[in-house]
Design a protein around this nucleic acid. Structure first.
Lengths: 236, 236
DNA sequence: CTCAAAAACTGACATATATCAGTTTTCCAC
DNA sequence: GTGGAAAACTGATATATGTCAGTTTTTGAG
């Protein structure tokens, strides 16, 4: 039995890769290839909530977090974005300001795509239109799932789910047959699971003593994914 | 200063009404007017999570809740849908099964719109396409907001926000110059705010003693919306 | 390699919230 | 209007989780 049969990752984690698949070679070149690449240092802000977007961003290299900041500078992390994905198309489609912020989780290489270019391609490509409708609907389903979890589940369950998704997110950086290394700060982990940092640390200690994970420095390895899914209390 | 300036309702509550505005008269007639109307009793299920959709629904009269059911039959309510709105288009656009369930909050009159009809109109209307992209992006922003609230805020704040939104939802049933009556069970209120029913009851009692709300039977009236917004701790 | 700053971690504590087991009130079909 | 079922409510209790105030470890620049 595959892992996805017990815990369907697609319900929790949606990539925009398929948006780009729907672009013709010409459109892809027009949007992405010809754009100048820019470097972002770890922690550098890519865009900020409340600002009007002038374009979107393509992640060539690195990882990005999208988040909403609270009054007492706690942040709720909404997405972790991998290389090969787009960010910032929502507010352009909604014709609104940014409703969240984005910053580099590690050193990143990113292209800026002007809003006009994106809309030009969108206008001439019915396939991109259709694909975007599909992607947005899927993202909504993932968010609905999250709301349900955040409304109903305990901290342990939320942390377990966060770790399962992060395992997928960090798979991409892993050389085949090597173990997946989740490299994330306890603070960001707290921001993903929506719990206090100290609680993350305590719960990770529990997982460790149960043999579910191991840690070296701040890097987490998942030793027993089945047990972790059980602890997440996921019912498919 | 308008209420919307202090607490922008649109960030919390998005209606699909604007999708229908983008339909031509012919398309509207094709999709909705010619369909047979069907009655749903209070509590009756409209569709269930996990099933493949064969169409969508237009609410002529009444209110509908969309929710995800938990293992221990607690439910997380995702939307309250008013008359004049559509439900069930997400899974059709996503080409997936229903990811939530819907049932009648009161007696309802609803039309079923076959999937094929919807897709036909979608194919011939670029405006509907564009409008749907906008609506879905907006819904995502609302959900992101909710995730942030559920991840970071207390029960009081979540309940306060739920009441502010419900006030908008029940405005539609109110004759001009009459006070808005929120008619919802404590259990559903708990399902919206993601807290325990008993806790809802206790917190409502607090609001009552602070003069923020009054109740007659199960009906809630908001007496002091400014104070309620303060208690919601919303920062725009 | 060294050192300062940042992050991780620990323990004690307060409290918000869920749970359980009742009682009272409301609702609505008859 | 009446009676029974469902919902609302209450009080007691347990506990999960956040907060605070430290100490220890890790990290990364120089």
């Amino acid at each position: 039995m595959s892992l996805d049969a017990i815990f369907p990752i697609k319900n929790w984690y949606f990539s925009t890769q398929s948006v780009l698949d729907s672009l013709s070679e010409d459109d892809y070149a027009f949007l992405i290839s010809r754009q100048e690449k820019q470097k972002y240092k770890k922690g550098e802000v890519i865009y900020k909530e409340g600002v009007f977007p002038s374009g979107l961003f393509f992640i060539h290299y690195g990882k990005v977090k999208k988040y909403k900041a609270d009054q007492n500078d706690r942040e709720q992390i909404l997405y972790i974005i991998n290389k090969g994905e787009l960010i910032g198309y929502h507010p352009i489609l909604a014709e609104e300001r940014y409703t969240d912020s984005a910053s580099a989780l590690q050193s990143c290489v990113i292209s800026f795509i002007p809003k006009e270019d994106f809309l030009t391609v969108l206008n001439r490509s019915p396939l991109l239109n259709k694909r975007l409708l599909k992607v947005l609907s899927n993202e909504l389903a993932v968010f609905a799932n999250k709301i349900s979890i955040f409304g109903q589940r305990t901290a342990v369950e939320r942390l377990a789910i966060a770790l399962i998704i992060l395992r997928e997110k960090f798979k991409i950086d892993t050389i085949e047959n090597k173990v997946i290394q989740i490299d994330i700060s306890r603070n960001d982990l707290a921001g993903i699971a929506g719990i206090a940092t100290e609680n993350v640390i305590r719960l990770l200690k529990d997982f460790k003593s149960e043999g579910i994970i191991s840690t070296t420095g701040r890097i987490i390895q998942i030793l027993d994914i089945i047990k972790l899914i059980q602890r997440s209390n996921y019912v498919g």
